[in-house]
Nucleic acid binder design. Structure first.
Lengths: 371, 371
DNA sequence: TTGTAGGCGTTATCAC
DNA sequence: GTGATAACGCCTACAA
């Protein structure tokens, strides 16, 4: 039944016995508190060393009421942005004396709820959550978070309307406005956007009810940017594609770009969507920078390496992760939650943005190649 | 001093009291074992629900002797390969009832040692480690692993000569041989390789003493592949570049490729090195697929999207992560460690491999452009 | 069917 | 300066 026989683990009792002192003294010697004769202390420590004593973190955590562990719940660790965020969180946490329990929800609220509950049971000292974009009044989620209301919580990358708790995001609204301005300043008036999200299936021009706050900000900022230049979004030029289905984003790009009457510039929601656009441009034999200008959110490693290099909104990932941990640890220390923390993005202008060649896209032009 | 006053947490004692039963009965009701009157059970459960009772995982773990948590120690979470591996590990672990503590070592053995020790203190039920390529007889590491010898351990992606424990890797040696064969079959005889690692500084043609087993296999396989075709590695065509320093890989590529007498084909150790080669080719105005053929390890998302698409050795990341967890959980269940598990890579031939244009690289050719 | 009681390993308070 | 003892929250053998 129980094949899991392990080697015996050395406890503080064993150390005490071997050093011929009481548990209390052994504990004092090891933890270095209280009054203790130096000779005794050293002897106990030597014995502990020799026996290979390792304190039991569980017992210690139970006794202390803190586990020195925080929980990180992200929507997709494999996404480069979250992978980097995770790295920053782990490294800052380690620096501050915490370990990190990590869970991947695949953008699923049920999984998020489960993770939050389980982590709370494991008595993490605090939680950093990238909330899955659920219905804003999801009862399960509310219940989950209410249950762990005593656990410090910091939202990362996205906010949720119904949670008035600390959050760390970046100013995606403003960056989207700026991205549009950049395109407009090069003479573009025919500007589209493709969003990749987990709510749609295939692609559609109808805005999903459920969007992460970062995505929503980018889309709203895009619209606002157009408005400020006296432009407006054409219905077919604002497309929402499924990030779940491998080719949905390419299909969206293809549908938009193979029209005779197509946009001369595009904003994409993240680097994966940009990659899809690049792929489709190859297929349609559109040259990026001349036939189509492109600005993407998320400065992935490849954007600067391909020809032409892609202009991108670089987000301060590492700082965001670090800020989240510092805020969390402050809360663990008893400080009340900060107001939302918003860091600045950096719009890097590369050669994927050029002057529009209007002739190519007029109805009488000779483009419109099928894939 | 102690600002960390939290809301009181409901324990099983509170539930018992509120339901007017003993702790034992409450426990039975909640865990659903032993003989208990259904009415009592339901009443206790209702009370627990109402009070928002959540079991204390620490206490449970201490009592049970298992924490339902595994530790994952990787060298760099931000690296796409390990990010995907982490995702697979987390998802498989979750499926099997475990949570994952994660640590990032940045390829540093000291950090690895610390993580292993701390995770052992937190009483993880098992460890999955991507070992940092340390000196094979590092005493600190040996001591660390000896101390946690009672904890099931699975090495991921790399083996260590001095550890005879379970491991999950992929057949990189064979794939390197295959990659060379592919190039040779297209007529290449002038073949180089660039390795990116954490031991070198700048770049060098001297093989570092310290290499991860995966990297070592790729390099050895490269040499073997040449040998099998009656070729041999030219000293200046097998370069080791620092992955720590941002431009070391580009410098290595530039040095190799701007020679008059340069290779017509290149194998790269991972997708980051490949990206550097692509960048350098742009600078030197070498066309990939015609002026230079390229095969890389690790099939990153962008390899198929750029022109020409890059041939790559795709590694079965997800399966590797899953296999590691399954092996670990089996060991936790008491099964002895398996012999090394080696999964198969998949060499995807794309258009970055072409026929060599020998004229361009002969001493009398008119190439050799400076950056 | 239910209650009593002991112990998991640690730390800290209180006596001696 | 040191030792006995209680407590953290849970589970379960045993007694009733």
């Amino acid at each position: 039944m129980d094949g899991s026989r392990r080697l015996p683990v050395v406890t503080i009792v064993d150390v005490a016995r071997a050093a011929d002192v009481s548990r209390a003294t052994a504990s004092r010697a090891l933890a270095g508190y209280g009054r203790i004769r130096p000779a005794t202390r050293d002897r106990v420590r030597a014995v502990a060393e020799e026996l290979g004593y390792r304190p039991n973190g569980l017992a210690r955590a139970m006794r202390a009421g803190r586990s020195a562990t925080i929980g990180l719940v992200v929507t997709d660790i494999a996404n480069p942005f979250f992978a980097q965020a995770t790295k920053a969180v782990a490294s800052t946490a380690s620096e501050l004396g915490y370990d990190v329990l990590v869970a991947d929800t695949n953008e699923d609220e049920k999984a998020e709820r489960r993770a939050v509950l389980v982590f709370a049971e494991k008595r993490v000292d605090g939680l950093i959550v990238v909330p899955a974009p659920g219905s804003p009044h999801d009862q399960l989620l509310d219940a989950a978070y209410a249950q762990v209301a005593s656990t410090p919580l910091v939202l990362l990358d996205r906010r949720r309307a119904d949670h008035h708790c600390a959050s760390v995001t970046s100013d995606d609204f403003r960056s989207a406005v700026d991205a549009v301005s950049l395109l407009v300043s090069h003479g573009h008036t025919r500007i589209g956007m493709i969003d990749g999200n987990w709510a749609s299936s295939g692609f559609t021009s109808r805005r999903p009810r459920i969007l992460g706050s970062a995505a929503a900000e980018r889309i709203d900022g895009f619209r606002e940017g157009l408005k400020r230049s006296g432009l407006s979004a054409r219905p077919g030029w604002m497309l929402y594609a499924s990030a779940r289905e491998p080719y949905a984003t390419q299909a969206a790009a293809a549908s938009m770009l193979s029209e005779r009457d197509r946009p001369t510039a595009l904003v994409t929601n993240n680097s994966d969507v940009a990659l899809a656009v690049v792929t489709v441009c190859h297929k349609l034999e559109l040259e990026i920078g001349s036939d189509l200008s492109l600005v993407t959110f998320d400065d992935a490693s490849w954007t600067a390496a391909i020809r032409p290099p892609i202009s991108a909104v670089a987000r301060p990932v590492a700082q965001m992760g670090e800020a989240a941990v510092r805020e969390l640890v402050a809360q663990i220390g008893g400080r009340p939650p900060s107001p939302p923390i918003v860091l600045s993005n950096n719009l890097i202008d590369r050669r994927s943005v050029g002057v529009p060649d209007e002739r190519r896209v007029q109805p009488h032009g000779e483009d419109s190649l099928l894939s």
